[in-house]
Amino acid sequence: MSTRPVPPWAGYGIRFARPSESGAVAALLARAFADDPVMAWMVPAAGRESRIARYFRLAQRQQRPHAGAVRVAATGEGRLLAAALWSGPGRWKPSAVQELAALPRYASIFGLRGLPRAGEVQNAMDEAHPQPPHWYLPSVGTDRGLQGMGVGSALLGQQLADCDRLGQPAYLESSNVTNLPFYEKLGFRVTGEIRLPAGGPTLWPMWRDPDPTAGRLAKGR
């Protein structure tokens, strides 16, 4: 008989995040992105993790008006293990009014040097963003120490199963080359490179077509 201890997060489930959890979601994503190459290029080193957390608080405020925008993997006791921000078809780009209203917060997060870089990143991603309707995954992160244990795959798998059922594609940009195999196992494929100016890091746009087999199986149930 195995005596291997059961991890305290073993009994987790996937659900929509509650509005009261926005701070916990932001803190989790900040830990997950603390060493991200693009975040490191944009966000000053001093207080980086707290700045990134503020960024993800802002990102959630911009996405929360859309149903199902924030999904989490969480234990029954409420511990968050992973979080994903999603935008549905036609909703991936904040309005000009939203962006203008958020500008002072962006300036506080990124600082004088980082703000122009953040603008360059956003412009480069917008130019490369595909036009066909799709689900967009701007951010997903698993908490420290839990990577590689299947939590992130389970979290994304629920939305991707919905994409298959509805016949809808999905899109993301990976900011870390080491994450490409993870996304490829979920059905995404690299479609090019987004190279940032002034020696900045590279992002990899990735597209996922819906699995027609999964859609047919769902209809046959």
Rank of each mutant, 00 (worst) to 15 (best):
G78W: 07
G11W: 06
G141W: 07
W135D: 09
G88S: 11
R31Q: 09
S87G: 04
G114V: 10
A218V: 13
I109D: 08
M39Q: 14
T213P: 02
Y183T: 01
A30D: 05
A198K: 15
L85I: 05
I52G: 04
W135Y: 14
E21R: 12
K93W: 13
G141Y: 00
L80Y: 07
P138D: 02
G150H: 01
L155I: 07
F182D: 05
R105A: 15
G76A: 15
A102K: 06
G88P: 02
P19D: 00
A45F: 02
A45L: 07
F16K: 06
V38S: 08
F188Y: 11
P8H: 13
A170N: 06
A67G: 13
Y171M: 01
T213H: 12
L29D: 04
A26P: 01
R31K: 07
A27K: 02
I109W: 03
V72C: 05
G150W: 00
P94I: 06
R208F: 08
G145F: 03
E184P: 02
A46K: 09
G200R: 08
W86C: 02
A154S: 07
W9S: 13
S50R: 14
G200A: 09
P5K: 12
A83E: 10
G199Q: 10
A124I: 10
R48N: 03
A45R: 14
Y183A: 08
G145Q: 01
N123P: 00
L146V: 05
V25L: 05
A32E: 06
P89Q: 10
S22V: 08
M206K: 02
L103G: 10
L81H: 02
A214N: 13
S50Q: 14
W92M: 11
V190R: 15
P5A: 11
G111M: 05
V43D: 00
K219Q: 15
Q60M: 11
D143M: 01
F33R: 03
S2R: 12
T3V: 04
L203S: 12
A17E: 07
G200M: 05
S87Y: 02
A53S: 12
R117P: 05
L103C: 08
S95N: 10
L28V: 13
A107W: 11
L137H: 02
D211P: 15
A59K: 00
R144N: 06
G148R: 00
R71E: 13
G76N: 10
F33T: 03
D209P: 02
G76D: 12
L112K: 14
S87V: 03
L81V: 01
Y55H: 13
A34C: 07
R113F: 11
A10M: 09
A218F: 14
L155P: 07
A24D: 15
G199W: 06
P205G: 05
A84Y: 05
G157L: 05
Q122D: 14
P104F: 12
P94M: 09
A26E: 04
T178M: 07
S174K: 05
G167R: 12
G119T: 09
V190D: 02
R15Y: 07
L103E: 15
M125N: 06
R18K: 12
I109K: 02
P210E: 07
G88K: 04
F56S: 12
L29R: 04
Q122G: 12
